[in-house]
């Protein structure tokens, strides 16, 4: 037998744990980029005080109540409202003038996590007078994240950053118009989600559900391996209306994707693409 380094044993454990999660609960992380998923699993192992990833697998297989907590480690992203303000400025100044020509609009926020981007876009569309004709679809695979997104409650100590971002994005109103402060929390106005559907949807396994004019999916696909990225981008391609827009994270790219040819650069520095004529 050749000697095996400890991290190689861990690699086997990761593979088995991801397989177990898929077979037992149909959550499929098998095609997530391995280096990040490993960090997250090791954090979970430490959090639960377990000696190994095999022990973590044993626990989650037999105890369904562990699942939501483990999903928290594997999926939850801490974002900001109007994160990368230049992206939202580009939407405001370059994309929305095109969307204005449509009588009704559908916008998909894929991988919405705790909803920061959902409220950012709702506020942006309201400021630009497009909110009332727009239906927003906010999707995620984590039920706890969807509940948080639907609640729209954020810690007040994050609001200063949100406000600064909103102003840099070219905001025409004050962010404080949209929330009430309450015991250290900012509770966002429920009228912002009158046109929002929060829904469980997986880019790994689910299908097209509507024809969108704009899809925003930022810092979600960096966690996917190449084949899974191809699947997700293919899904966006098939979900976009003719000339629809796709925005991704500032350090993501469609360049390496199998579907790159289906998209044209629209605002390259903000990674906003436009669906080519099929």
């Amino acid at each position: 037998m050749s000697p095996v380094a400890p991290h190689e044993v861990e690699d086997i454990e990761i593979q088995l744990l991801l397989e177990a999660l898929f077979q037992r609960y149909h959550y499929d992380f098998r095609h997530y980029a391995r280096a990040s998923i490993k960090r997250r699993l090791l954090q979970a192992r430490t959090h639960f005080g377990l000696p190994s990833l095999t022990a973590l697998q044993e626990r989650v297989l037999h105890d369904p109540e562990m699942l939501p907590q483990l999903l928290g480690f594997l999926t939850v992203q801490v974002s900001e409202m109007f994160r990368d303000p230049a992206y939202f400025r580009a939407l405001r100044e370059q994309v929305l003038p095109h969307l204005r020509t449509y009588p009704s609009l559908k916008v998909w926020i894929a991988g919405c996590s705790a909803g920061e981007e959902v409220y950012s876009l709702a506020i942006l569309f309201r400021e630009e007078g497009l909110f009332d004709r727009t239906m927003f679809y906010a999707t995620d695979i984590n039920p706890d994240a969807l509940r948080a997104a639907e609640a729209g409650v954020y810690s007040l100590d994050r609001i200063r950053k949100f406000t600064e971002n909103h102003q840099k994005s070219g905001g025409r109103t004050s962010l404080s118009d949209y929330y009430t402060a309450d015991y250290g929390r900012a509770v966002f106005d429920k009228s912002l989600r009158t046109n929002v559907v929060f829904s469980d949807h997986s880019l790994v396994s689910d299908a097209v559900f509507g024809e969108m004019q704009l899809i925003s999916c930022r810092n979600v696909m960096i966690y996917f391996d190449r084949p899974l990225q191809d699947r997700a981008v293919g899904l966006f391609k098939d979900s976009l209306a003719r000339n629809g827009f796709l925005g991704i994270g500032s350090k993501e790219s469609l360049r390496f994707s199998r579907h790159a040819g289906a998209f044209a650069d629209f605002v390259p520095e903000e990674k906003i693409y436009r669906r080519r004529e099929p």
């Binding site: 980029a33 391995r34 990040s36 960090r39 810092n219 960096i222 966690y223 994270g249």
Partner: peptide
């Protein structure tokens, strides 16, 4: 980050 095959990866964790 560096993946097992030597390719680079980014994360916003």
């Amino acid at each position: 980050l560096v993946e097992a095959d030597g390719a680079l990866a980014l994360s916003s964790d």
